[in-house]
Simulated assay, not measured.
Amino acid sequence: MGSGRKRKNIVVPDKKKGGRFDAKETASTDDDPILFSFERIQSGQYCFSGLDDDHKVAAADAIFKRRQLRWSELKQAGRHALGFEKMPVSQIKRAPVPKFITEDKQTLLVCRYKGLAPMVGYRVRQIFYILWFDHSMNLYDHE
């Protein structure tokens, strides 16, 4: 688990390594479970804090239901069920796209959390970074 010293089951990183990660530790496949991150949620109308209580509960429940699923299982599930669909960034019409969404991240993922209401984000390895909760169904043109 690294060459750092252990302190009660916590690995303390070795300062001599400079914070680098071994490729084996960061590699990810579709067999990994999905992890959700609120770290990149955008402020404004589509932020988690802007949701009413029903939508907050539904969002938490949707994440809870997916917590042990693998990415491969999400890919096989229906897009209006536990699965997701892909969407080009260019479809976002009513919120500014964050500057960290670069040319290599021009496809977003859309998961439903309350009926057809989507949470929109992107994937890096096994993490789904949520950007917006489209509770009013007007963040982008729904087809």
Score class of each variant (00 low, 15 high):
2 G>M: 01
5 R>T: 07
12 V>H: 08
14 D>V: 15
17 K>R: 06
17 K>C: 07
18 G>T: 10
21 F>R: 08
27 A>M: 08
28 S>I: 04
29 T>I: 03
31 D>G: 03
32 D>S: 15
33 P>E: 09
35 L>Y: 12
36 F>I: 09
41 I>D: 03
45 Q>C: 01
54 D>L: 10
55 H>A: 15
56 K>P: 11
59 A>D: 10
61 D>L: 15
63 I>H: 01
64 F>L: 15
64 F>T: 11
65 K>T: 12
66 R>E: 05
66 R>A: 01
68 Q>T: 13
69 L>H: 10
70 R>T: 13
71 W>L: 13
71 W>S: 11
75 K>R: 15
78 G>R: 14
79 R>C: 02
86 K>Y: 04
86 K>S: 07
89 V>A: 05
89 V>C: 02
90 S>Q: 06
90 S>K: 03
91 Q>A: 07
95 A>E: 04
95 A>T: 09
96 P>S: 04
99 K>M: 01
99 K>T: 00
100 F>N: 06
102 T>V: 04
102 T>F: 01
103 E>P: 03
103 E>Y: 04
103 E>K: 13
104 D>S: 14
105 K>M: 11
106 Q>S: 07
108 L>E: 11
109 L>R: 08
110 V>L: 12
110 V>R: 15
114 K>D: 13
114 K>W: 14
116 L>Q: 04
118 P>S: 11
120 V>M: 08
121 G>P: 03
121 G>R: 01
124 V>K: 05
125 R>S: 03
128 F>V: 02
129 Y>Q: 08
133 F>K: 00
134 D>C: 05
135 H>Y: 05
135 H>C: 00
136 S>I: 00
138 N>A: 08
142 H>K: 14
